[in-house]
Design a binder for these strands. Sequence first.
DNA 1: TAATTTTTAAGGTTTTTACCGGATTGACCA
DNA 2: TGGTCAATCCGGTAAAAACCTTAAAAATTA
Lengths: 210, 210
Amino acid sequence: MPIRILLADDHQMVRQGLRALLEQEGFKVVGEAADGHQATRLAQELTPDIAILDLAMPLMNGIGAAKAIGQASPQTKVVVLTMHTEAQYVLEALRAGIRGYVLKSRAAGELVQAIREVSRNSTFLSSDISDTVVDAYLNKVDVPTDTLSPRELQVLQLVAEGKTTKEVASLLNISVKTAESHRTRIMEKLDIHETASLVRYAIRRGLVQP
Amino acid sequence: MPIRILLADDHQMVRQGLRALLEQEGFKVVGEAADGHQATRLAQELTPDIAILDLAMPLMNGIGAAKAIGQASPQTKVVVLTMHTEAQYVLEALRAGIRGYVLKSRAAGELVQAIREVSRNSTFLSSDISDTVVDAYLNKVDVPTDTLSPRELQVLQLVAEGKTTKEVASLLNISVKTAESHRTRIMEKLDIHETASLVRYAIRRGLVQP
DNA sequence: TAATTTTTAAGGTTTTTACCGGATTGACCA
DNA sequence: TGGTCAATCCGGTAAAAACCTTAAAAATTA
């Protein structure tokens, strides 16, 4: 029985390319998602063996999606596929429970290898990921953590993407007032008082692309 | 005789995926490049019919590569493949002599269509490209793009720094209304509709630090 | 279990934006 | 030299968004 895969990347063209590559290798791509929300919903519905998640996605980024999928479909193992080599991203992903971390700058063979390793319960990190990062994770060295709650991170990402409070509310299925509350609280916590600074903060945190 | 294609994108995995898709369609990918320099060299060496260029590449970006290829291999037609929908990217690309502009967020079919159109000397723009840009292009109207006036750049920077419109006005010794109309005009020019996107644009332009 | 944080929400107020308009200056061009 | 156009400037009004305060389930943690 082929390994069943969910593919999440915000660029349809990239997804189609990856699908072609993966199907050549005998994997079965059972679903595609363009954002973290959709990925989570599809993971719950399809319970794929592997979810391949881009880190930079709108509405909900890869980290958020990894956590959500861990809840919605525990048997699904997550492989992150990204351009980011920075330690911060890797560690955050590992803490979110991902099993593989593959760089887009590497050959497709690495993704294939990652899928095979992860699906037999091992882990896989692209060869460019420094050993120090892994050490840091294993030794549980303290890295400055976000004081923001998961929900707040979600709201922050959406705000930084340019969503209005109304849009945020409807995307998260909460009232406008609640969305407002979240944003107010984020600003309080971060001691930030304008949207522009919030956007810059979100970019520094890697929640959105510049 | 199949259409001969040069593929340039800084992510090997994406290139491999696109190659798979294009070869399924009967095109012949004769070369791959990971940056603008390499793309230019290969274009000169291989004189492909079509060069597909990502805009975001190291060493030399897609625009620079498009111009260089126009010199090095005049018979090669350039199709830009990117995630950017902003007017200034599109127009800049058009001015650099590109023949197709395709968004990565669209289906691969659009890239195929673009290749066919361009290779028979037509042009192709992805359907998400704003109508105003298309109009500007079709009417050959010289629409100002990133040619923000000095005053507008000033306002943009202040806005991106988190200054309120009121603060901008007082810093520049103009009325709030004037500051507002500057910002409105900036957004018009850039085809951007929220402050958050404006901030991200300013960061990309290097006007402010993230 | 108790304490705390998170997430949710509303009512009333203030601020900002969107959209309409027009005026002036200076540069460029036919 | 008169016309055009971009840049700069400013105002009114209606709508939208943000802000302030309060608060109560729900989830987490101690």
